[in-house]
């Protein structure tokens, strides 16, 4: 099985790697707004954001805390509804989709990697990685296991399948989370500060993993980060400030 970690051939460069992108948009956001309204205050989290993510792109989003990066990622991932605007996935607007249709779309197209991993502590590494496949019709137990093993192999954790999250280091946990995102073979991975809780060595390891995933598998990745160096290694860097894209 191909291991993305061991396939790394060179030290990371400060410049973006050669893209494997096409100009085929997978995510398109048009005039996206997100407004949080209470009785007394209205907070604009996203202000008329227009953004296109193309197939095979590795895009990073940067900006100060509270500028709307994570909200944007949640909206892209269909975890949150915008207050206005249009989201298109593969050219199809998804606003009118039901809860069931959105869940199926998330399950088949999108993999998530979170800053604090969000692994289920009561489940083994293997069971955690199998999770997206539990909700995929037509995938049986044996196939789930095989795909989960394959995903864990890719992140170099095939020897840890029976461990529980509490028995792993932060870097290992994030690799499990990436394996979980990969198990469903999604076209898009949305990573919300995937190295935010890790030290620099582990952060580097995870970044390598994501870069290789993008290079070798052509997976589209959108990553929110605070790390300028890491952001520069992606193909495109988008900066956010006060709910708007500034570059």
């Amino acid at each position: 099985m191909e291991n993305i970690l061991t396939q790394t051939t060179a030290r990371p460069q400060a410049t973006a790697p050669a893209p494997v992108t096409s100009a085929q948009p997978v995510i398109q956001l048009r005039e996206i707004e997100k407004i949080y309204q209470t009785k007394t205050i209205e907070t604009v989290a996203l202000n008329r954001v227009n953004l296109t993510i193309n197939k095979g792109e590795f895009v990073s989003i940067m900006g100060p805390s509270g500028c709307g990066k994570s909200t944007l990622l949640s909206i892209m991932g269909l975890l949150d509804e915008p207050s206005g605007g249009v989201i298109e996935l593969d050219g199809r607007p998804v606003q009118a989709y039901s809860d069931r249709e959105l869940a199926a779309l998330r399950n088949q197209k999108i993999g998530f990697v979170f800053q604090s991993y969000h692994l289920i502590n009561d489940l083994s590494v293997l069971d955690n990685v199998e999770l997206p496949l539990l909700y995929r019709p037509g995938v049986g137990g044996k196939q789930r296991r095989e795909r989960a093993y394959a995903a864990l192999d890719k992140v170099g954790l095939s020897a840890r399948t029976g461990h529980f999250p509490s028995q792993l280091s932060g870097g290992q946990r994030q690799r499990v989370a990436i394996a979980r995102a990969l198990a469903g073979r999604p076209e898009i991975i949305l990573a919300d500060e995937p190295t935010g809780n890790l030290d620099s060595v582990m952060g580097e390891e995870i970044m390598e993993l994501l870069l290789n995933l993008n290079r070798q598998e052509g997976t589209t990745i959108v990553m929110v980060t605070h790390d300028e160096q890491q952001a520069r290694r992606t193909q495109r860097l988008i900066r956010f400030f006060d709910g708007s894209q500034v570059s």
Partner: peptide, 13 residues
């Protein structure tokens, strides 16, 4: 966290 993750990865209500 578990509920959020399950929903994120495709669990319906």
């Amino acid at each position: 966290s578990e509920i959020g993750v399950r929903k994120a990865f495709g669990a319906t209500s």
